[in-house]
């Protein structure tokens, strides 16, 4: 088994926010009827978190569920436990019509920490980042400049961004430029 590494080897940047590549994160994408009680139960068993409502995120300490679309959820589990979690999920789904795949190594994840985190995201994505409009407990799939990505807030000053691993360098550079200390807008 090859050694798993972060896409950019753990890059970090300090500017308006502290931008860092998140440690390896286990991610399982699940396609199923999310209103099905059996699916909800299987998600709860695999992640320890309950399936959130539309555009919701329930994540605690690297474990949780993100609402991705009406029939898709992203399950977050510790990287080392992803195979076990996937096996458990597949087993508890049983005969339910569903598809679950381990996509941990196909994604890159970044964390922005600091009071300007909202501002950095607002510069790049067409999302209303005003306090009250976007809050912890919500997830948003959108685009960051030219690439697709998703993000959710852990608290008012911490935002996690997920994108495809193939565009990790682009995303990191983009977030770095947007958090350049000379580019502060102080809008929020």
């Amino acid at each position: 088994m090859s050694e798993a590494v972060q896409p950019l080897g753990g890059s970090a940047f300090d500017g308006l926010v502290h931008l860092s590549e998140a440690p390896l994160q286990g991610m399982i994408t699940l396609r199923a009827d999310l209103s099905d009680a059996a699916v909800k139960k299987a998600i709860k068993a695999a992640t320890g978190q309950t399936m959130p409502d539309i555009r919701g995120a329930s994540v605690q300490e690297g474990q949780g569920v993100l609402w991705m679309s009406p029939d898709e959820a992203m399950l977050l589990v510790p990287y080392a436990e992803v195979d076990a979690a996937l096996a458990k999920l597949t087993k508890s789904l049983g005969k339910v019509h569903a598809l679950a795949v381990n996509v941990s190594d196909a994604r890159a994840m970044f964390s922005l920490r600091g009071p300007a985190a909202r501002e950095v995201i607002a510069k790049l994505a067409p999302v209303d980042m005003a306090p009250g409009a976007f809050e912890p407990g919500m997830v948003r799939r959108t685009r960051f400049a030219q690439v697709a990505g998703a993000f959710w807030m852990e608290d008012q000053e911490t935002i996690h961004v997920v994108c495809f691993r193939s565009v990790a360098r682009y995303m990191f550079d983009l977030l770095s430029v947007a958090s350049d200390p000379a580019s502060a807008v102080d809008f929020f």
Partner: peptide, 11 residues
């Protein structure tokens, strides 16, 4: 109508 977001053109 699926995710309830007022999406703008670039999305």
């Amino acid at each position: 109508p699926y995710c309830g977001i007022d999406a703008e053109e670039t999305e």
